[in-house]
Each structure stands twice: as structure tokens, then as C-alpha cells.
Design a protein around this nucleic acid. Structure first.
Length: 851
RNA sequence: GGGCCUUUAGCUCAGUCGGUAGAGCGCCACGUUUACACCGUGGAUGUCACGCGUUCGAGUCGCGUAGGGCCCA
């Protein structure tokens, strides 16, 4: 026991000892699922640095892990790293100064031109390398990040079993991801379709509904005249450049203005294409002129109309976001084709300007463009508006087009325990609002390849309907280098041979399988049977529509059951202005510095005092919660040092005989019961809220009240005081252990051999004391202190006599502990006098002092 | 436009069954004591966003309005 206990250095000391003793390792004993508490940990993205939000939410998870471990459960707490996906790709490009070109051959001797020192992030300055070289760099860089993340998490005190880690780009994760896809394919849940897809022109990949966001963008309404049967039909459009892609006009069926036009045709200006006028309830009569262009494709409504009216496809925007070279066949006039030729190759932006000029020249533009702002769909990671282009993609069913599946998913959502409860509606809103199946293919490089090949027919044409799949035990495969069963590399691309799929899967297609990946579903070593279904899925509220939904979907399709019992949803961190902290806003603080500055226990306290689902403010300049936590941790060390330094003749529950000691333990019993219930309900903030005030009352009042006895002559009174203090200390250390694992373990180690963090969750002593005694004594103590403060004398000033009045029952209780109260107040003669509403100390006569 | 959360002391937040409004920080005063100066003790501080309703009684329950935030269109 040190002379002057301090928090500094506890993190490294105990993290190392815990690792050495292996107390956080998942015990692989027999017994299957019984007695196991398993956690489907969120894998942080390994690109760059951890966010303070990680510290916040991972602490919440760790509180539960530690509680359940202390209760003797076998806790499965793994850690995963999400190293898949675009963030990694972009980081690797910028870090190493390279870009992926899948057509290049692998170069085993390749050395990247830069190591975090690339001067330019322009594609032209980046060295093109093969997919395999690119992936090697992705793995190398993410590994370094993961190492750093692990160090921060160990310092934070996460009780993770660090042997149970996975990477979403690892062999096992890729194999599981591909296997799950093949299972979906076999059951008819995965399919390909040539369909209009939301397309990011910068990244040149399709994106899914879950990755969309609306952004307010400036735009303009253009008033354009179409030639009608009798007179001009005037539409308003924000996308005049899509005029050559126009396939119809649409108005609401009830709109009197256009009723006569339904079923007839109008002719587009400039391009002179006859298009039908159709009626549909999605058309908005109050928007613009109430009649709108249907183009292939301007927005998602266009896709609906195109599909429902079986309209032709006139694609004008290419995968690169530029106008395609060839005009749609429907444009037959010479002038129309000449006008189109002027647009070919232009970006959407400049094509718009060109069309506006053409419209002006022909007189079809009836007014100057009218500026507006309107919501435009973006890929959440992109910075150019999405286009909609027809492509062949792979889809997974998700209930959007299948009511039976949708109802099953909603039912599962009702079976899942959400903490807090109100988060369930976000899931339900998402499931009910789905508009299409899950687009899982991505035209990117670093990720899990779709594990399929296609036959090439005798004419050398790829036949996408003839899908070749790998053997299950050959997974993971890369179809661009591996060959399908029964073929050789020589058959690649040849008539009668095969071609490999080049697309990869959506990163969520892998992340949705974290239970299977973490639980080692196919390892055959019993782990899976011991941990699935998981007890806890901790995650952020922002990824309910992605991670939570997709995991639940995969589990329903594969196992017909919930992947976990409870979803614990953390809020996020906001700065003092209530703005969500995020990288893009530049108000991010790095966790390592904060942990170093305040100490891990203090930071954990800050996190623990926020309940699940509610956002927490962090004022880095004035982190009051962290200071409070730090103060608490220091107090724990000091109180423990004091109590353990006291001598006693006998310890244990039998030695506790004095009313105040029994009363204090009875009050503590209540705290143990209530805090246990709170943790059982995943309410760590409530538990802390119960334990912390008791601990302070214990230090400020009880310790002061019994100090005299504890320091006093040997005997029953002294033994009772010290025995009760030791019991209470052990109990309080246990109750605080999840929140302050370092300080609590340090203090515990001064009087125990084993770790506090295994099987030491406190239980009530049930010695039958009066739990109100301490409160009553405390009230008396406050009165005495007030009298001394009012008299501006030291608290140690002796009092010759005093009289305590108050409610009868309280005064009676004070009488039962009058010895302790008198000793703590240094009162010679204490008289008790029932009466009045509040406890008051009157007639205080200070002892005359010599000086 | 729809949904959800939120509004309590200067700040950050509790307030469980509807029964006298709470904590920490900050502020003021006092004291430095034998666990603790990263200290202790005491004190002051409220239109519980607003309105209506239910009730003997509303911070708490219901309806509505406003501000803040998030998600989805």
C-alpha cells in the first residue's frame, strides 16, 4: 500500500497484469450456451484514428461485460476491425500515392512511392497498381491502425479477450461472407438484375438505399414548352439536360388541366421526339406547372413511372457522369441529332448550360431559369449528386418487395429488446420504408469479391444467367485469379470458358455477419454453439438502418432467429454547441490525449454517467464530468488506504455489533440490490447514480462518525467499526469496479490476492440493521457542523453541550447512535429533544479554550 | 411533410408509484483535521419552455403550442 496513492500509471500496470493473468479470456469450458454472456462488438473502421465517440460507447459495453463477468458468467467479449470499404481505399491511395487498376498484373517487387508523404491526392499523380498489390497495401495500413486502436482500448481498460479478434478483410471473414452469399444464392434470396441503379459518378460504383442522404442543393426551374396536339404544354424541370432522355410527361389523374392530354402525345423541343402523356398519382399538381418530364433517369420517381408504364430506356448519362456519345435512337431528326452531338461528352453541368442555350435559340425556354434550393440524393461518402443508370447488379431480398418477409422482420424487431425502447421505431420506420431489395454489388476493389463466375458461350459472349460457384471448402476465392471447379486458367475469357465476376460486395454484406465471424461459425470447435445467439449488440443509433437491420436480416434468412437478445444503442458525442462531433465538422478530439490527461477511470466515469441512447456533451475546455470522475477515483484510493490502515481484533460479519455500523451496512444492502437490478436492465447510469452518492455519504459522514471508535481502544466498539468498514469497502469497490476498474482493482489489491474483476459482484450482508440510522446521524452531524461554521470555528472545536431537536422518529434514531454523533461533533454533553419539522442543533456551548 | 427524442439552478444533468425541487461544477463564507490540498465544512441560487385539461394534489399523466436535436421522405 503506497504512502500517497495516485492514479498515474495504474492503466499500464493493471492492463499488463490482466493480460498476463488472462482474466478477460473467454473460458472454453464445457456447458455450451448456459452461463455465457456474449457480445457482438461493433468493429471500428480501421482508417485513421479512433473518435471520442468510440471511447464513449465502448465504455458502455465494457460496463456490462465487467458486470456480467463479476457475476460469474463466462463473458465472450471479442474485438473486430472493419478494414473493408471505401474509407480504407481512399486512405491507402493518399497514404501511398497509388491507385488501383484491376487490369494490371501483380508485381511482387512493388514498393509504394510514398509512406504517408504523398504530396498530391490527384489521380493523375498516383501510381496505378494491380488489385492484389493494392489490397496488400490496404492490409498493411489497416494493420498499423488496428495496433494503435488496440493500445488505446487497452489503456481505456476494455475487458476484451484480445485473442478473439477478427478483421473484416481477414480470410475467415471473407470465407464466411462468401459462404453466406452462396447460401442466399442457393435459396433464391440473392439474384442479379439489369436495372436502374443509383450511381456515384466519382467512385463509379452503384450504391444502396442505406447509403443515401439528401442534401439541399441550389438548382433552377426551367420552363420548357413541348408541342401539344393543339397548344404548347409547359413543364418545369430542374434537369433540362435530360431532355433527350425524356420518355413521357406525367400529371396527376385528377388534374383537370391535363385530363384531355392523357393518352395522347406531345413533341419535345430541340430533339423532336414524340412522347406520351400519362396519369399517375405520384405526380404533384402543386409542383411547377403540375406536369413533369419523365426521363431515364432523373430521379427515383422516374424509375417508378418507367417501370409501371413500360416506357423505353433512353440513356444519356454514362458511368463517368458525362453525356454518352450516341444519341438515343428515338432522336431521328437531323437537327435533333446535331443538337445532341453538341452535348456528347459534356458533364451534366455543362450539358445543362448547353441545353438552356439551345432552348433559348429555339424559343422553347419560356422564362429565365428560376433559382431554387432542393434536396438532391448523394452517396453519404460522395460529393457529387448521384445519377441513375441502368446496370447489371446483384441484389439480396430484404422484404421491400415481399410482404411475408417484411412482416417476419418486423416481428423480429418486436422480439428484440431495444435499450432504450424508443429506438425500435427507427428500425420499424426503416423496414416499412424500404423501396427496393438490397443492392449488394459494388464496383470497387478493396473488399470481399462476389464469389461467382459466368460462362462464356461458344460465340465468346458472357452469359450472366450461367452462374458458376466455388466449392464451399475452397473459400475465400477471388474470381479474378481463382478458377471455377472444372476449369483451368486457360479457359478464362475463351469461348466455352468462363469469366470471373469483378465486383465486390457492399461492406455491410460482410459486417452483417459479425455474429458468425466473431463466433467462428464454421470452425467446428464449439465456440459458435456457446455464444450464438448473442446476448448483446451494442451499437450507434446512426447505423440502425445499416448494421442492425442487415445483421437481423441475414440471421433471419440463415437461422430463422434473432442474432441477439438485446440491442444497446449509444448516443453520440456533441460539442458544447450541441453539434454532433464528426470528422467533417472539424470539431473532433482524439481519445488518446484525453485519456492521458484525465486518466482512464475519469473518462470512463464521464461515459458511464450518460445513459444509453442519450447524447453526451463534451466541453474539452471544461470537462467537469471527467474531473468529477477523477475526484471519485482518488477518493476511492484514499478511503481504502485509510480503512485498510485501521487495526482490529476481529473482522467479519460477526464482529459488527454497533447500531450505526449495522445501519450503514443495511443501507448499503439496498444500494447493492438496486444497482444490481439497474445493471441487469442495462442501465449503468442508474447504477452509478445509486452507488456514487452512497460512497460519498459513507466517506463524509459514516467515516467521520466512527473514526473515534475505529481509532480508539481495542474492544467491541472498535472491532465493529473496522469490520463494518472493511465489508463496506469491499462492497463499494465491487460496485464501482465496472466504472473505475483501475482504481478499484488497485485498492482491492492492497488486501486481496485475486482480481476484483472476476466473480466478485457484491451481495447484500443482510445483517438486519436499520438503514435509516446513518441518514439520521448525518442530519445531526450537519447541524453540528453548521453551528461551528456559523460560529466561524474549526470543526474540531470541542463543544461542552448541545441540544438536538427534530421529528420524533429521527431524534429517536439519533439517540441510538448518540455516542458516535457526540464523538464526531466533540460534544461533551448531548441532549435530545423531540419536536419540530427539521433536525436542528441548538444551545451549542463551546468549551472555553486556554488561549 | 412524417416519426422519434428533448426543454428542470449560471453550466452539465438526475428526479423510479402523481405527494415539500436534487447532485456535481461554478459562486460566497469558513476551516485547514491524524485517509484525502487533486482537501474539508456550511451557504445562496428555480415561472420545472408555454397553454389547457385530468386529479384532493402535476416536474411527473393527457392534449396542444414553441424552441433544440436526430432519423426518414
Amino acid at each position: 500500500m503506497p504512502d500517497k496513492p495516485a492514479l498515474e500509471g495504474l492503466e499500464h500496470k493493471w492492463a499488463a497484469r490482466w493480460e498476463e493473468s488472462g482474466i478477460h479470456r473467454f473460458p472454453r469450458t464445457a456447458g455450451g450456451r448456459v452461463g455465457v454472456y456474449s457480445i457482438d462488438t461493433p468493429p471500428p473502421t480501421a482508417s485513421g484514428s479512433l473518435h471520442i465517440g468510440h471511447v464513449f460507447s465502448f465504455t458502455h459495453t465494457d460496463l456490462l461485460a465487467r458486470f456480467h463477468r463479476m457475476r460469474g458468467e463466462r463473458v465472450f467479449y471479442p474485438m473486430g476491425w472493419d478494414d473493408n470499404g471505401l474509407p480504407t481505399e481512399r486512405r491507402v491511395q493518399n497514404y501511398y500515392g497509388v491507385r488501383c487498376d484491376p487490369s494490371l498484373p501483380y508485381d511482387a517487387e512493388f514498393r509504394p512511392p510514398a509512406e504517408g508523404t504523398a504530396k498530391s491526392t490527384k489521380a493523375a499523380d498516383q501510381v496505378p497498381i494491380s488489385r492484389r498489390n493494392f489490397i496488400e497495401l490496404c492490409r498493411r495500413l489497416t494493420e498499423e491502425d488496428e495496433q494503435r486502436f488496440e493500445e488505446v482500448f487497452r489503456f481505456l481498460g476494455l475487458s476484451v479477450d484480445w485473442r478473439q479478434t477478427y478483421r473484416t478483410i481477414g480470410d475467415e471473414a471473407r470465407a464466411i461472407s462468401q459462404r453466406a452469399f452462396l447460401n442466399n444464392l442457393e435459396r433464391g434470396e440473392a439474384y442479379q438484375a439489369l436495372a436502374p441503379s443509383l450511381w456515384d459518378v466519382s467512385f463509379r460504383t452503384a450504391v444502396a438505399q442505406a447509403e443515401l442522404e439528401d442534401r439541399e442543393q441550389p438548382g433552377a426551374y426551367h420552363t420548357i414548352a413541348f408541342a401539344g396536339p393543339s397548344e404548347d404544354v409547359v413543364i418545369e424541370s430542374t434537369r433540362p439536360e435530360l431532355l433527350p432522355a425524356c420518355v413521357a410527361l406525367v400529371a396527376h389523374p385528377d388534374d383537370e388541366r391535363y385530363r384531355d392530354l392523357f393518352g395522347r402525345t406531345v413533341r419535345s423541343p430541340i430533339f423532336g421526339v414524340e412522347v406520351p402523356v400519362v396519369a399517375h398519382h405520384l405526380a404533384q399538381p402543386d409542383k411547377g406547372t403540375g406536369i413533369a418530364m419523365v426521363c431515364t433517369f432523373g430521379d427515383l420517381n422516374d424509375v417508378v413511372w418507367w417501370r409501371e408504364f413500360d416506357l423505353p430506356t433512353r440513356t444519356v448519362i454514362g458511368f463517368d457522369g458525362r453525356i454518352v456519345p450516341d444519341a438515343p435512337d428515338a432522336i431521328t431528326s437531323e437537327s435533333g441529332r446535331a443538337a445532341y452531338a453538341e452535348l456528347a461528352g459534356k458533364t451534366v453541368f455543362s450539358a445543362r448550360a448547353a441545353v438552356v442555350e439551345q432552348l433559348r435559340a429555339t424559343g422553347a425556354l419560356l422564362a429565365d431559369p428560376r433559382p431554387i434550393t432542393h434536396p438532391v440524393k448523394f452517396y453519404e461518402k460522395g460529393d457529387r449528386p448521384l445519377e441513375i443508370v441502368p446496370t447489371r447488379q446483384w441484389y439480396l431480398v430484404n422484404g421491400a418487395r415481399d410482404e411475408v418477409l417484411r412482416d417476419r422482420l418486423l416481428q423480429r424487431g418486436r422480439e428484440l429488446q431495444f435499450v432504450p425502447e424508443f429506438m425500435r421505431v427507427r428500425y420499424e420506420n426503416w423496414v416499412t420504408g424500404l423501396t427496393g431489395d438490397w443492392l449488394v454489388s459494388r464496383q470497387r476493389f478493396f473488399g470481399v469479391p462476389l464469389p461467382v463466375w459466368y460462362r462464356v458461350d461458344e460465340h465468346g459472349e458472357v452469359d450472366h444467367d450461367e452462374v458458376l460457384v466455388p466449392e464451399r471448402d475452397s473459400l475465400p476465392v477471388d474470381p479474378s485469379t481463382d478458377v471455377p471447379p472444372g476449369f483451368t486458367e486457360g479457359d478464362r475469357g475463351r469461348p466455352g470458358g468462363f469469366v470471373g465476376e469483378v465486383d465486390i460486395m457492399d461492406t455491410w454484406a460482410t459486417s452483417s455477419l459479425t455474429p458468425e465471424i466473431a463466433g467462428g461459425r464454421y470452425r467446428g470447435d464449439g465456440l459458435w454453439e456457446a455464444v450464438f445467439p448473442f446476448d448483446l449488440r451494442p451499437q450507434g443509433q446512426d447505423i440502425i438502418r445499416t448494421w442492425l437491420f442487415s445483421t437481423l436480416l441475414r440471421s433471419e434468412l440463415e437461422h430463422h432467429e434473432l442474432p441477439w437478445r438485446t440491442a444497446a444503442i449509444s448516443g453520440f458525442i456533441v460539442d458544447p454547441d450541441r453539434k454532433k462531433m464528426s470528422k467533417s465538422k472539424g470539431n473532433v478530439v482524439t481519445p488518446a490525449a484525453i485519456l492521458e490527461q484525465h486518466g482512464s477511470d475519469a473518462v470512463r466515469y464521464w461515459a458511464a454517467s450518460s445513459r444509453l441512447g442519450s447524447d453526451a456533451a463534451l466541453d474539452v475546455a471544461n470537462p467537469t464530468q471527467m474531473r468529477k470522475g477523477r475526484k471519485l477515483a482518488i477518493k476511492v484510493l484514499n478511503a481504502a488506504k485509510f480503512i485498510l490502515g485501521l487495526e482490529a481484533g476481529a473482522l467479519g460479519t460477526d464482529a459488527v455489533t454497533e447500531p450505526l455500523d449495522l445501519g450503514m451496512l443495511a443501507a448499503l444492502d439496498r444500494v447493492v440490490d438496486d444497482a444490481t437490478r439497474a445493471y441487469e436492465a442495462e442501465d449503468h447510469a442508474r447504477a452509478l447514480e445509486l452507488v456514487e452518492p452512497f460512497f460519498w455519504t459513507f466517506c463524509d459522514d459514516h467515516l467521520e462518525l466512527v473514526k473515534d471508535r475505529a481509532y480508539g481502544l481495542p474492544g467491541q466498539g472498535r472491532d465493529s467499526a473496522v469490520a463494518a468498514l472493511r465489508i463496506a469497502l469491499d462492497t463499494l469497490l465491487g460496485l464501482l469496479a465496472p466504472v473505475l476498474p483501475f482504481a478499484a482493482e488497485e485498492a482491492w489489491s492492497w488486501s486481496h490476492d485475486g482480481s476484483l474483476h472476476t466473480s466478485s459482484w457484491p451481495v447484500p450482508t443482510a445483517l438486519g440493521g436499520d438503514p435509516e440510522l446513518l441518514t439520521a446521524a448525518g442530519e445531526a452531524l450537519i447541524g453540528i457542523r453548521r453551528a461551528k461554521t456559523d460560529a466561524k470555528v474549526s470543526q474540531r472545536t470541542p463543544v461542552a453541550s448541545a441540544r438536538i431537536t427534530g421529528p420524533e422518529q429521527t431524534v429517536h434514531r439519533i439517540g441510538l447512535v448518540a455516542g458516535d454523533v457526540g464523538a464526531a461533533g466533540r460534544i461533551g454533553s448531548l441532549s435530545l429533544d423531540p419536536g419540530g419539522d427539521a433536525v436542528e442543533v441548538a444551545d451549542v456551548v463551546f468549551q472555553p479554550t486556554e488561549s
